[in-house]
Amino acid sequence: MASRGSAHEGFLRHANGRWCKVAILVSGLAIAVYALTDATPRPNGGTFAGYLLGSLAALLVLWLTMLGLRKRIITRGPYSLKAWTSAHVWLGLSLIVIATLHTGFQIGWNVHGLAYALMMVVILSGLYGVYAYANLPAQLGANRHEATQPQMLEAIRALDRQLDTAAQPLGHEDAATVRLSLEQCRVGGSLRQRLTGRQPGCGNRRARDAIAARVDVQRRQGKPDPALTQLLFLLERKDAALEQVRRHIAIKTRLELWLHIHVPATFALLAALTAHVLSVFLYW
């Protein structure tokens, strides 16, 4: 049986930072190779050290891409996706050193420069991903209050049903106000709305404000309508429920959004890298 730790150890610190050490070692070796070989006229991708570092970088890119496949293929063998993620992050970072040394600090406006730029986009988006994975999960958990996403949505539907019932005895105008909450209130919406969790002109908020103003007037007159007070209570509860689920979706969107840059940029990088390698061998 596989041995099991009794504590949670995140992917960055996996196995006492094994892959961090490996990445530093590989980077150090790359720097040593670059510094110790005397390239003429000046270091570039065409020297022995350049080919060495270039081949290493290309192989690394291919292996790093395999994480997408690895995480989806559930095999029976003893593997740990956490170890893969750890290696992916640290070796991915070492690529900055290896690939930059491979260029010999000569970057031009051509397909080679494009490959380098795309690689940096992938790495920087990945860095943001690491930042997000380190900071957002705690917020996500704290916001959930043990409710699952389907439960949060169901709670809103339940409140809608209660609002619908509570609105039956109301007059035409008040009923129209409640309809704002029922019909013009969205949870998700555009990317911007999902990301910020803010929905300007949210129907529920407008309905709540309108009913709150009416209840306020009635209270000052000393004769609040219990039906309307109950309605306000429901609208306020729905507001709180909406805020929770919107924040939930906002955090989840932030946890996923960077992947929508990271992954397409990776495929673009693979294409540019192919062009880079082919052009070097065919036309150099």
């Binding site: 150890e9 995140g10 992917f11």
Partner: peptide
């Protein structure tokens, strides 16, 4: 095995 971040134990 399939947890990418080490959250599941």
């Amino acid at each position: 095995r399939a947890c990418p971040t080490g959250a599941a134990i």
